[in-house]
């Protein structure tokens, strides 16, 4: 798993590449938590190059979404969710917890 971060004026964009499982999810969580610690609560996770994510990764997303949405200070949104991952998110009932966009710029513009 590799994460590249891009900071915009109103939000942060995280591109997650590779695989998020129980081994790598803690690092994924840490990156999102760090953004929150720095006062950034409008987060975009770009999944275009994400090959795989297990429920450990879902847990990281859920925890981050809770923290971002607290006191209406922000939100975590998803971009370019690959078909298979979207199906797994749907199975877990997660699709209604996250707004999704097909274009990173559209997501950036939504904040």
């Amino acid at each position: 798993m590799e994460i590249t971060t891009q900071e915009f004026k109103h939000c942060d964009l995280f591109k997650v590449q590779g695989r998020v499982d129980s081994a790598t999810a803690p690092e994924f969580s840490k990156v999102l938590e760090k953004a929150n610690t720095n006062g950034h609560f409008k987060l975009i996770v770009d999944m275009s190059e994400l090959e795989y994510i297990s429920s450990a990764g879902f847990r990281a997303l859920l925890a981050a979404q809770r923290n971002c949405k607290r006191m209406n200070r922000g939100e975590l949104v998803l971009v370019n969710v690959p078909e298979r991952i979207r199906e797994a998110l749907e199975l877990a009932g997660f699709t209604e917890l996250f707004k999704t966009f097909n274009d990173p710029l559209e997501a950036v513009g939504s904040f």
Binding site: S55, F58, L62, Q65, R66, L91, G93
Partner: peptide, 24 residues
């Protein structure tokens, strides 16, 4: 069985692995 309709604050992540295994 995880409550897949619970709102964000009440959503439990525990049990999701077993749920997915059974579904898949």
């Amino acid at each position: 069985h995880p409550n897949l309709k619970a709102d964000l604050s009440k959503r439990q992540i525990g049990g999701l692995g077993v749920y997915l295994m059974r579904k898949l």
